[in-house]
Design a protein around this nucleic acid. Structure first.
Length: 434
RNA sequence: GGAGGGAUGGCUGAGUGGUUUAAAGCAUCGGUCUUGAAAACCGACGUACCGCAAGGUACCGGGGGUUCGAAUCCCUCUCCCUCCGCCA
């Protein structure tokens, strides 16, 4: 949520930022008009309340002296009716104003590329080298089928399409990766591990910016008015909702959670295998930092996500997203994409974003600065990293001509010493044999 | 799910209709004193909004109501505690 004072006082700057994003310009004008109405109503109501408070006090004093106050009481009652009417108008205007402000996206950071879509994203860096193959590389679906580590047809019968099911060594590999990433972030990068609820209430969804805009993209439990989380960002960031932090910044938290996304409107897009699914696992990093440090914290956050991929020997690139492609709440965002030779393309496995005070205002997360002044924190988060596409890259990059898959040495301890996934032998019904 | 008891400022905790613009204590910060510290004493000490300012308004778990006036009375919701039931 943008600061209403900033909208009011630096209107041109905000308008330009929203223009760069391609956001609806009408929203801003609506907010400005509602803000004017609100302040006019507020001034009027507060003036009357002041009079009522003072007069009521006088009534109390007069009655103590035994005077008759019926006349004054009648006057104040009229005043009270006027206040009730003004408060009602105010309530409506404030609700409209709040609803409108919540729909305004964050102002993009001045340094990011301007553009309307992914085509304008800037490739910041490319790391590592693509592997060369002496044979035609297969894609992850073919490889996983051969290895017997995934069963999508049965998962579809059980639930529906887009809900993956891993088996044997596939399930173990997933678990190993989660463990590897959490260990890296907690032991090397200084994060505290959290295992949060996977279901949250509407206030939390609003706090991080998923609501109101993304309601249709999420799973909602209507009976309880609870939402399945689309990312660990939601519970982890909302950990401090409505708090003034009493601990030194930055606060670094990391969490493994499953993520649930309806992917409404993306039917048919890149749906082969586990490329785009309704449920996936992810390790997420979240930072609560002092405002003046947030952009250097973004760089280190990106480094932490990269560390996961470097440790696995993977070839990846960093994109600096343009103004039209960053998410609703973000001011700046880096995407990390892994090279997948079977897919013959780049796969997004991480987004590392600085939200500045946008989420902190919505979720009301503050801290006391050096002068003891209460201020909003800046929040950041980054995937570290999302699992299905990491799994795809590992399978496709590690594949051998015989159908086996070599695992990166860093994972071997987490796989109980297993270095290679091999197809199940003849006669075995289900696979996943190591 | 049933019955009962609770929710007050960073913490403890008073307060059942009118100087409560919330007592007191603890904690914190500043000052005096001290070589320094402690103690003692003095002072400060919530958040948000509106206003150029003076100042004003709101907030005692959330929402609504009664009243000239609500932390205080009424309704309702949420959460916590105790007991019972059910259950991984």
């Amino acid at each position: 949520m943008l600061d209403i004072k900033r909208i009011r006082e630096k209107t041109d700057e905000v308008r330009e930022g929203l223009r760069r994003r391609g956001a609806d310009p009408v929203l801003l004008e609506t907010v400005l008009e509602l803000d004017r109405q609100r302040r006019a109503l507020l001034a009027s109501a507060e003036e009357k309340k002041n009079r009522r408070n003072a007069t009521s006090k006088e009534i109390g004093a007069a009655r103590k002296r035994g005077e008759d106050t019926a006349q004054v009481q009648a006057e104040v009652r009229t005043l009270g009716d006027q206040i009730t009417a003004l408060d009602e108008q105010l309530r409506v205007v404030e609700a409209d104003l709040q609803a409108a402000v919540l729909r305004i996206p964050n102002v993009p950071c001045a340094t990011i590329p301007t553009g309307t879509d992914a085509a304008a994203n800037r490739v910041a860096r490319v790391e590592g080298q693509p592997r060369t193959f002496s044979f035609a590389p297969q894609d992850h679906v073919t490889l996983a089928e051969r290895l017997g580590i995934m069963d999508l047809p049965r998962a579809t019968r059980m639930t529906g399409s887009g809900f993956p099911l891993l088996l044997g060594a596939g399930a173990r590999l997933q678990r190993a990766l989660i463990q590897y990433m959490l260990d890296l972030h907690t032991q090397k990068h200084g994060y505290t591990e959290m295992l949060p609820p996977f279901v949250v209430n509407s206030a939390s969804m609003c706090g991080t910016g998923q609501l109101p805009k993304m309601a249709d993209d999420m799973y909602h439990c209507e009976k309880d008015d609870l939402w399945l989380i689309p990312t660990a960002e939601v519970p982890v960031t909302n950990y401090f909702r409505e708090e003034i932090l009493d601990r030194p910044l930055p606060v670094l938290l990391t969490a493994y959670t499953p993520c649930f996304r309806r992917e409404a409107g993306s039917a048919g897009k890149e749906t082969r295998g586990i490329l785009r699914v309704h449920q996936f696992d992810k390790v997420e990093m979240v930072k609560f930092v002092a405002p003046e440090t947030s952009y250097q914290e973004l760089e280190s956050l990106l480094g932490h996500a990269e560390d996961v991929l470097r440790g696995l020997g993977l070839h990846y690139r960093i994109l600096e997203l343009c103004s039209g492609d960053i998410s609703f709440a973000a001011a700046k965002c880096y995407d990390i994409e892994l090279w997948a030779p079977g897919h013959n393309g780049w796969l997004e496995v991480s987004s590392c974003s600085n939200f500045e005070d946008f989420q902190a205002r919505r979720a009301n997360i503050r801290y006391r600065d050096a002068e003891k002044k209460v201020q909003f924190v800046h929040t950041l988060n980054g995937s570290g990293v999302a699992l299905p596409r990491l799994m795809i890259a590992l399978l496709e990059n590690g594949q051998q001509e015989d159908g086996s898959v070599l695992l990166p040495p860093a994972l071997v301890p987490y796989m109980g010493g297993v270095e290679r996934l091999v197809p199940p032998g003849a006669g075995e019904v289900i696979g996943g044999k190591c």
